[in-house]
Simulated scan of single mutants.
Amino acid sequence: MGRQATIVGAPGFVGQRLHARLRTEGWDLYAPAKGDPELLGRDLGVVFYCAGLTADYDRRPFDTVAAHASLVSEIARQGRFERLIYLSSTRLYDGQLRAEVGEDEPLLFDPRDPRRVYDLSKALGENITVARTGGRGAVARLANVYDWADGAPGFLSEWLIRARRERSLRLESSPHIRRDYIHLDDVVEALVAMASGEPAGIVNLASGELVSNAEIAGVFRAAGWEIAFAGEAEPPPPPNARIDKLRRLGVHPRPVRDVVRAYLEGLAP
């Protein structure tokens, strides 16, 4: 029997791919359903806490707090795990008034802003993980994760999925918006690396580069697609997340332009 792992949120976007990867490597996996009464009464091995809300967090603030902080608090309190790896988000950097940020810098939040329930609840989950687990906790702050499997969430994922059936795309966004994108397989690679070695504290799972929609559209156009955008908004870019810690784990995320280019080459007739 292989190493033991528990994936909380296994049916989700990251959880599914992580489960598939660990299964092929021979891990002994436990993927509890929501509300599984056995979760807090058994040895869990390495816990990958992948549960959370994203798109509808503002509409469901109390569910957001429960998903991001309440359950992980119970897991930390019962303590029957080898390691706890909590999935958070580089969205927590959005309040930083800096061009570039690292994992060890304090975060800034305005608690009067109702939309900050996502950031504040994730920050609480992070605090429990790194400060209340006796040195057994680590946090993975994910940037914008993308893939092209059916149902993959997020703007770029939907763009790539549409490209399989459409050669002319009009996108409800602006060419000027910049984001840090990391492919789902690189995220899984990083999570497996975090489960190996010593706990690494907080680690940015990002590419380390902000890329505009216009730059990605250029890759599409070079491959033969027609791309148009519905808007021209030019919001300030988010802080760029440094990835020195990630590289020290031996993980080197692929640039989004290279991944998209290879994907489109595979779609070409």
Rank of each mutant, 00 (worst) to 15 (best):
N144Y: 13
V72T: 02
A223M: 02
S168A: 15
V8D: 06
G154N: 08
E82R: 12
R83G: 07
P253S: 13
H252A: 12
L267V: 08
V187N: 03
E158R: 15
Q78L: 08
Y146A: 08
F155C: 07
R167Q: 14
K245A: 12
R80Q: 04
P237Q: 06
T90D: 00
A5T: 09
R257F: 07
A69V: 02
N204A: 03
A241G: 08
D110H: 13
I85R: 14
G95I: 03
G250T: 11
L156S: 09
A10H: 11
D180R: 05
A20Q: 11
H19P: 00
D94I: 01
E82I: 07
S88Q: 00
E189D: 15
T129G: 01
L267T: 08
Y30A: 11
D113G: 09
H68V: 07
L107K: 07
A33Q: 08
L53Y: 02
L120F: 10
R60Q: 13
M1F: 01
P255E: 09
R42V: 06
G201S: 03
V72D: 03
A149Q: 14
P11V: 04
V256F: 09
V203S: 05
A51D: 14
V219M: 06
P175Q: 11
A152R: 13
N213L: 03
N204W: 05
E226S: 13
K122H: 09
A214L: 14
D36I: 00
V14K: 09
V256Y: 11
R80D: 10
T90P: 00
D104K: 11
L246T: 04
A190C: 10
V259E: 10
P111F: 08
P61L: 06
T54K: 14
H176F: 09
I75E: 02
E172T: 12
D104H: 10
G208F: 06
A123F: 09
G79Y: 10
A33G: 13
R59A: 15
A138Q: 13
P235G: 03
S212K: 13
E158A: 14
K34F: 02
V117S: 10
A195S: 15
R167M: 12
H19A: 15
S89I: 05
P153Q: 10
R60C: 12
A140V: 10
N204C: 06
A195F: 02
G125E: 01
I216T: 08
A69Q: 11
L267F: 06
V188I: 12
E82G: 10
T54L: 15
R141L: 01
